[in-house]
Design a protein around this nucleic acid. Sequence first.
RNA 1: GGGGCCGUAGCUCAAUUGGUUAGAGUACCGGACUGUCGAUCCGGGGGUUGCGGGUUCAAGUCCCGUCGGCCUCGCCA
Length: 587
Amino acid sequence: MLRSHTCGDLRREHVGSTVTLCGWVSRCRDHGGLAFIDLRDRYGITQVVFHPGEGATLHEEGRSLRSEDVIQVTGVVEARAEKDVNPKLPTGQIDVRVKTLKVLNKSKTPPFEPGTSELPNEELRLRYRFLDLRRPALQQNMILRHKISKLTRDYFDSLGFLEIETPVLGRSTPEGARDYLVPSRVHPGAFFALPQSPQLYKQILMVAGYDRYFQLARCFRDEDLRADRQPEFTQIDVEMAFVEREDILSAIDGLVSHLINGIRGEQIPLPLPRYAYFDVMERYGSDKPDFRFGMELKCIADIAGRCGFGVFKSTIESGKRVRGLCAPQAADKYSRKTIDELTEFVKNYGAQGLAFFRVKDGALDSPIAKFFSAEDQKAIIERFDAKNGDLLFFVASDAKVTSAALAALRSRLGKELKLYDPMQMHAAWVLDFPLVTWNAEENRWDAEHHPFCSVHPDDVELLKTDPGKVRAQSYDLVVNGYESASGSVRIHDPAIQQTVFDLIGVTAEQAESRFGFLLDALRYGAPPHAGIALGLDRWVMMFAGNDNIRDVIAFPKTQKASDLMTGAPSDVDTKQLRELHIKSDVK
RNA sequence: GGGGCCGUAGCUCAAUUGGUUAGAGUACCGGACUGUCGAUCCGGGGGUUGCGGGUUCAAGUCCCGUCGGCCUCGCCA
């Protein structure tokens, strides 16, 4: 070992002992006589002191150190005088008087300094990821990620689950997200696909008798990125046999409790709250609302239909909806100009406009208030339980647009008005999603979750008569407005499976050619089974109180899915392409 | 594929309506300084304003294109 302690170890009790530390030079304070160096590693920061009394050569060497040099120092732990204690550092009661210094590696002048709080733009951070990862904030995220993985493995292990790895090189199944493809050298013209999730493998593991499976599985989806979405991410993948929905929900309740207790030391009440998809869409306009605050959506179709405001009236007459929300005590915080900005904002979600009313002296105050009778103004105020000083917003459009626009507005206002504690974790289930949704472009039904999701037992009859009303035995775990887990009870009967395929327009031949191996497996004694997958990256992000998934991934990709550090993806030799029987039409 | 924001010294930013030699802090280099912890003080070097066109007497500033980063709609079974 090149060191006796880390830079986070030393305390007053070590005073007098001789220690050896290694680390990176974080900051230098050179007084000509005394020179102070903040020495940093992932455990902390320790101040080391170069004293002129320890010899001119050593002193000069100490003074010549610069940011990010890697050094090894041996010295004596000394107590700081009371006035010199640094309360910001856990090691702030001591420093190390250096007796010998070894520069293990000199650093070039870094493009930015991990030791300062001022952050450069993200492009530079990604290009020099090794420097960015030296920052204590990112190191804490990596440590947090490790802890969550460890707690997860411990939890499932304690319940008798087996972690089983599934292939990364698999078969392309064209449904769902776009696949990342890997060409086969030995099968000219054929491709592997990287898994979007281990879905089919884990169901086959159930058939194979591994009735409690989990895996921290890397997944790949070639779709556009977002702040909370990377093309390559990690799922906590879970599947159980001989179970019902309830067993999955309670198993994951237990995991969530285990994680929150393990990371935050907090106990949460179980079971987690459960909501029906339909209710959540009606009350929040989103299937993944942030439940940490209220500000629920309300419908005013009755009032809108009889008011004098043409836009509202004609919307209701054409069978559409007028819904709104009440922003508490926001009337003075949002000027006409900022409301105009909000109007532009909701237009991104298809809304034509945004009607607003300030609540003032028990009535509505707005350019369009005159179109509403005093009774209707009062009725609106009562419906929202609005108080003087509140600000009401309304969107008139179909169910989809009013939901999307108001959900986005609710989310934005909740953040701007600080209606919740950003560090709070609130987890709740959303149940009974529709099995299928109508795809107007392709003129057919699409699976909402995936094609292997089983049908709610009460709704089997509706499959043939009114597919849009059929509920799936599926469930999402929603945390702080993020879809943090999603799963379902699976179909284990090949006949029902084919019924669902028929519904979503997959012929028996297509099903055989794409998923034949799964369908075949289901014919050889498939137990009833169900499962779920949690987005590990998002969980780490939420525990970190962060809203950027890149900060919890060691080597993330940019929005254009490239790696600025390595330069991936890159050109390859024509020789490689020839071996893979690939011709490119680029260039 | 669409919408928005951004790109000026190594870094973070400034630069009036288009107007003289593009500034500041920090980092870097040199000097002073024995208890600092965002050390302080003095001095110095450092710029193809992302790139390519265009308008103009004159472009960091206006226009077009392009590259890159971020946010977002679509997309993500």
